[in-house]
Write a protein that binds this DNA or RNA. Sequence first.
DNA 1: TATTTTATTTAGATATATCTAAATATATTT
DNA 2: AAATATATTTAGATATATCTAAATAAAATA
Lengths: 220, 220
Amino acid sequence: MNMTTAEENYLKAIYHLSEGGTKSVSTNDVAAEMKTKPASVSDMLRKLGDKEVIEYRKYYGVNITEEGKKRALQTIRKHRLWEVFLVDKLQFAWDEVHEVAEELEHIQSPLLIQRLDAYLNYPKFDPHGDPIPDEFGDVRARPRVALNEMEIDQTGQIVAVKDSSAAFLRYLDKVGAYIGARIKVLDKVEFDGSLEILVDQKKTLFMSKDVAANILVIQS
Amino acid sequence: MNMTTAEENYLKAIYHLSEGGTKSVSTNDVAAEMKTKPASVSDMLRKLGDKEVIEYRKYYGVNITEEGKKRALQTIRKHRLWEVFLVDKLQFAWDEVHEVAEELEHIQSPLLIQRLDAYLNYPKFDPHGDPIPDEFGDVRARPRVALNEMEIDQTGQIVAVKDSSAAFLRYLDKVGAYIGARIKVLDKVEFDGSLEILVDQKKTLFMSKDVAANILVIQS
DNA sequence: TATTTTATTTAGATATATCTAAATATATTT
DNA sequence: AAATATATTTAGATATATCTAAATAAAATA
Ligand SMILES: [Mn+2]
Ligand SMILES: [Mn+2]
Ligand SMILES: [Mn+2]
Ligand SMILES: [Mn+2]
């Protein structure tokens, strides 16, 4: 059973909104995520329900099925492998890859993805620090904490961002934060929750609580 | 002015059928090439005519415009660069790349193609020996050589005949040589200059020096 | 609980890309 | 030149993916 590009995009959105299939998702949430109207979403949900990749009860939102989860993870796998390709091989900046990967993820060729994976040396994480599911859809996630929740003197490594908009990524580049950076919390201002961070044992930078909340860290 | 994937595929087909824009093309020829019905083609020709990438006169076929040629060549450039990528980097066989390239050629990202070109070291020919247009649509055609002048083990593609008499063309038809055929010189007899040729990786045929002298090949 | 607000669905429209069958224009043959 | 054959277009249908506006169901509030 083949899916169109639109169906794959919707299913991926539902997977993300449901936080990996653990929550049910409303029509309006999908419409916001997909930047379409709720009426269009209702139509698409009926179609995805017919294909049994989601369970759809009118007026009560949707839950993704096991089959749907498997398919969403395949699309996510392709998206993230292409992102690695663009950054590692074609010297794209990490904030330039998302749009293109959004198209490349729909290319239909299992052989292509298998070969690409090998060519990239079986990467486990994409340029934004997000894990790449294996061909069976298995993901090895690292426990991550938002930077704003860390305490003074705690250390760790930036592994992902919650907001991967180009604007946010460019801001991080500018201040010198990046995936893989070793950080230490030097100070936290109680008044507004802003932080002072040491990056790579040499550079100090200040950031608001809002920014820190969008940076994910594995602690060390 | 953006074009859909379907429009790009039709335009590319028209470009090829018109032999680079030199001939006009009939509705039925396009339908055969695209494996669609003439009625569908009529619809699409009207649309492409409105976009001024072809000149369309009802009942008299189409001619591609300069703008159309430029766009077709960009799609062809992308197709062939992706084919090089698949063969050179991902170890695809030459006969496995076409379908995937047919999808990849529609990815919209000038940066991607510019970087891919550099990454592949600015290749001038694709895995089938076809020339890759540069970013301005310029194609450096390879010099043609008469088949009798080729050496053993050299390969190429039949692109033209010197003698286009009906008798000669009938003879070529009969033995299975034709414009576009991929050939390889298997053997050359010193005594009379006759050749043993492999056609399309499968069929062997013998021809006299006189016949070979009338067949033009671009080498690959 | 009745009313109001919000969320969601349905109805009907537009746009793309395809098809089959019928109509018609052009080309070929007698 | 008329008849026939072929090529092409048009008309009307189906499928996908979107929209706006109206209808309606569910949730929140009074
Ligand atoms: Mn996508
Ligand atoms: Mn990513
Ligand atoms: Mn194509
Ligand atoms: Mn090729």
